[in-house]
Design a protein around this nucleic acid. Structure first.
Ligand code: ZN
Ligand code: ZN
Ligand code: ZN
Ligand code: ZN
Lengths: 160, 160
DNA sequence: CAAAATACGTTATATTGTAACAATTATGAA
DNA sequence: TTCATAATTGTTACAATATAACGTATTTTG
């Protein structure tokens, strides 16, 4: 998996994500329409979360007739339902899922400076959360784990 | 600490929270004005998160001249700055902090059915998050950990 | 007291997200 | 194919959450 903090040919990230999405949707009989695919591509345009209205603006730049909010939100809903993107509630923004084919609870490290959000997977986090919830008799249905701070690239850099 | 899922005299929760807030603010030289205290009291009116506009409505019911959004948001900002309340970004809502005098990362169990949100603290969660971030070279500044599901009270109850 | 800082009031507006219904397109059975 | 149905998208209007900007009042400090 590509490290989002290092320079890399990001077209590969996009192409891989689109390819995997097509494959997953085909398997599930879900219709990844051109609009939905376009929105997914825009979400993947960087490793930073993007807002719904930014996606809307990008769509507007591309098409002659500009789309309306429900169009974008519906596409985002579809993509979330099928695990292709995640919503970061602390930012009201969306980001591509780095491993949509595996069932997982998402956990993000969000850099305050460069805005890269890395999805991490660490069994110990899942385990400790599950333990803790279980000890309270709480049944987890969904989780939102978002850690904000400084990524390895930015933690050393002097604040300007 | 009172268990929010069990029936209890909630006035005690409110009074304790207000008392501790007064004491903490006094120590820090922070001004817990009547307005800020009133908002804190409204946040503590239950163990469920409350939205800013619900607080606004409550204020409107109580005072003759109804307050405006900035008034409420400023009070909420103050209360957050001093660790007296937390914001649950997955709900766009606010809840009283159960242990404002201790430095901590908040972690919430939010019941989808009864809407009670319990703040939990478990060293193993903090440890695993810190470990995980550290292994990536990421410096955590703030965390938002919100687990949604069914609380012990509701997990057994039949869905109506 | 006067000056400065802080808090609050007020108006307007930005940002994010949905409800409702119409038009279109894809799907699948007859 | 052809019609009926379901799914998707378009469109309008609006709800819900949050903030900018500026003026007024209050508190603090010298
Ligand atoms: Zn990339
Ligand atoms: Zn960074
Ligand atoms: Zn209580
Ligand atoms: Zn419950």
């Amino acid at each position: 998996m590509t490290n989002p903090y290092h320079p890399h040919n990001h077209r590969h990230c996009i192409e891989d994500a689109l390819q995997e999405a097509r494959s997953l949707c085909k398997d599930k009989g879900a219709r990844l329409t051109p609009l939905r695919e376009k929105v997914l591509e825009l979400v993947w345009q960087s490793h930073s979360p993007i807002g719904a209205y930014d996606i809307l603006a990008e769509l507007g730049r591309l098409e002659e007739r500009s789309a309306q909010p429900p169009t974008v939100y519906r596409a985002l809903d579809f993509l979330m339902e099928h695990g292709l993107i995640h919503r970061l509630s602390s930012l009201n923004a969306f980001i591509g899922c780095s491993h949509p084919s595996e069932q997982h609870n998402s956990c993000f490290l969000i850099c305050e400076k460069c805005h890269v959000a890395q999805e991490i997977e660490h069994p110990s986090i899942d385990a400790s959360l599950k333990d803790c919830a279980q000890s309270q008799g709480f049944k987890i249905i969904d989780s939102s784990i978002e850690l904000t701070g400084l990524c390895p690239n930015c933690v050393g850099a002097n604040q300007e």
